[in-house]
């Protein structure tokens, strides 16, 4: 165990809406070690902590294309529809979004609790 105190400062991503924090290792559209994958927005990315394989990444979040707020990709915080939108911005401009998205949001609101519960159950 090294007692080096000058460990590299960890870059930490924090969602301004839900306050989720996680260290990220890359910001941009081309995650390292992936040949054929390109992201359609600049993302905060960490090495996927849940797999041992080195080149798997996990997208944490990005900037809302309208208000520039840093948001995570949790459906409670943001959505992607050709660009990233934080949910407050979506709600504010809800009419600009296609029917499918509106319906999705309504559904989500309605079932927020039960769905959330189910979701976590099945994912462990």
């Amino acid at each position: 165990m090294e007692s080096s105190t000058n460990a590299p400062m960890k870059r930490v991503f924090e969602c301004k809406l839900c306050r989720l924090t996680a260290p990220y290792s890359y910001y941009g559209q081309k995650p390292p070690n992936t040949h054929s994958i390109v992201l359609l927005e600049d993302c905060y990315i960490m090495k996927d902590p849940f797999t041992p394989t080195k080149d798997k990444f996990l997208i944490l979040g990005s900037q809302c294309s309208l208000c520039k707020t840093l948001v995570c990709i949790d459906p409670e915080c943001s959505l992607f529809y050709s660009k990233r939108f934080c949910l407050p911005c979506v709600n504010e401009n809800i009419k600009e979004f296609p029917w499918e998205i509106r319906q999705d949001l309504d559904k989500r609101k309605a079932q927020a609790k039960s769905q959330h519960h189910k979701g976590t159950e099945s994912k462990t």
Binding site: H35, V38, L40, C43, S62, S82, E96, E100
Partner: peptide
């Protein structure tokens, strides 16, 4: 918001692309 795709397609909701 002006340049949002006119016709909905689920693929617009994906922020990943494969070359």
């Amino acid at each position: 918001l002006a340049d949002l795709p006119k016709d909905y397609d689920p693929r617009y909701r994906i922020n990943v692309s494969v070359l």
